[in-house]
Amino acid sequence: MERLTVALPKGRLLEPSVALFQRLGYACAVGNGSRQLLVDEPAADLRFLLARADDVPVYVEYGAADLGIVGQDVLRESGRDVYEPLHLGFGHCRLVLAGAPHQQGRDFRLVSSVRVATKYPRLARAYFLQQGISAEIIPLTGAIELAPRVGLADLLVDVVQTGRTLQENGLVELAEIMTCQATVIVNRVAHRLRLAEIRRLLSAIELSRGAGEQMLTADCQKKFL
């Protein structure tokens, strides 16, 4: 049998993800100066794959990785068809609508078209549709805060953790779209064919995650439903 492959995301979720597997007793020697993108776990039938966070749902949907860890913001934005059996209780963040202070209290429903810069075009589109707001979505790949300052967009949709970046750019939060955390995703076929191994791994993760950690905010989940 081939090794069970777990895709880990580069970026802010990498360190807590690696720590999680190390708590389970795996070496999980990825990242931290190592340039290896594919690492076999020496003492277990497992291997780790290091991918860009945006790509983790792709690896898992195609079955190139059996499981993955990814933020719910990235997962929802990807629209990929995968199982999501376990939320991890770390990597909390919020997807928000933000803009210059003078935008506060404006009724965007009555504006013919607002321009919105975002790294999350799919989620932004769904949000505005649900709110009955006509929006022109401008997809960008980074430094979204810049867009309203230079007149590229009226508003932005982005994830915030502390809100400091918004503040530094003179922007304020106008609405919360959803709250997110890290989650385990599983390929639909791998879940069928390697159920026992996957269940063992999931329950080990669930145990190590600790009872004290909040699993998910009900509020955030209601918004996905």
Partner: peptide, 14 residues
Amino acid sequence: DQRNPARLRLALDA
């Protein structure tokens, strides 16, 4: 269908 127990609990609550 997503085998998402957290989400399922909330849906059953709702």
